[in-house]
Amino acid sequence: MQIFVKTLTGKTITLEVEPSDTIENVKAKIQDKEGIPPDQQRLIFAGKQLEDGRTLSDYNIQKESTSHLVLR
């Protein structure tokens, strides 16, 4: 499924993911596309910070959901 990640600069990154993917996996995909190390990434969805060990389905992130990327 596709999800979108919006950066603070207003850029939207499109990612191909599975509901069973962990947040860690998603951060690795963002690193592949954008070159941002996962330890600098914070992903926010529905006002919550997403934890590495959880999956997209844990957070009820469905296709075409948009989460926000904040850099630390």
Rank of each mutant, 00 (worst) to 15 (best):
M1W: 13
M1F: 15
M1S: 03
Q2S: 10
I3K: 00
I3P: 00
V5M: 03
K6Q: 11
K6N: 07
K6Y: 10
T7D: 06
T7W: 09
T7E: 03
T7V: 09
T7G: 05
L8N: 12
L8F: 13
L8R: 11
L8Y: 14
L8K: 11
T9I: 07
T9H: 13
T9M: 10
G10I: 02
G10T: 03
G10N: 06
K11D: 07
K11A: 08
T12N: 05
T12P: 03
T12L: 13
T12M: 13
T14L: 10
T14S: 09
T14A: 09
L15E: 00
E16F: 13
E16W: 14
E16P: 04
V17K: 00
V17A: 05
E18A: 12
P19D: 07
P19M: 09
S20N: 13
S20P: 02
D21F: 07
D21Q: 04
D21I: 05
T22Q: 04
E24M: 13
E24N: 07
E24T: 08
N25L: 12
N25Q: 15
N25W: 09
N25T: 14
V26I: 12
A28S: 11
A28D: 06
A28Q: 13
K29G: 03
K29H: 04
K29Q: 10
I30E: 00
I30M: 03
I30L: 07
Q31L: 08
Q31H: 14
Q31F: 15
D32I: 13
D32S: 12
K33H: 09
K33E: 07
K33W: 06
K33L: 13
E34C: 14
E34P: 01
E34Y: 08
G35E: 03
G35T: 03
G35F: 04
I36A: 03
I36M: 05
P37M: 06
P38Q: 13
P38A: 15
Q40E: 12
Q41R: 01
Q41N: 03
R42H: 12
L43V: 04
L43Q: 00
L43Y: 02
L43F: 03
L43G: 00
L43T: 00
I44N: 05
I44W: 15
F45D: 01
F45A: 04
F45N: 04
F45S: 04
A46R: 14
A46I: 06
G47E: 04
G47A: 04
K48E: 13
K48P: 01
K48Q: 14
Q49T: 14
Q49E: 15
Q49N: 12
L50K: 00
E51H: 08
E51I: 07
D52V: 05
D52T: 05
D52N: 10
G53N: 12
G53V: 07
R54T: 06
R54K: 14
R54I: 05
R54H: 11
T55C: 06
T55Q: 06
L56E: 01
S57P: 02
I61M: 08
I61F: 07
Q62Y: 12
K63P: 15
K63I: 09
K63T: 11
E64C: 10
E64S: 10
E64V: 07
S65F: 10
T66E: 10
S67T: 15
S67D: 10
S67M: 15
S67G: 15
L69W: 03
L69E: 01
V70E: 14
L71P: 07
L71F: 06
R72I: 15
R72K: 13
R72Q: 14
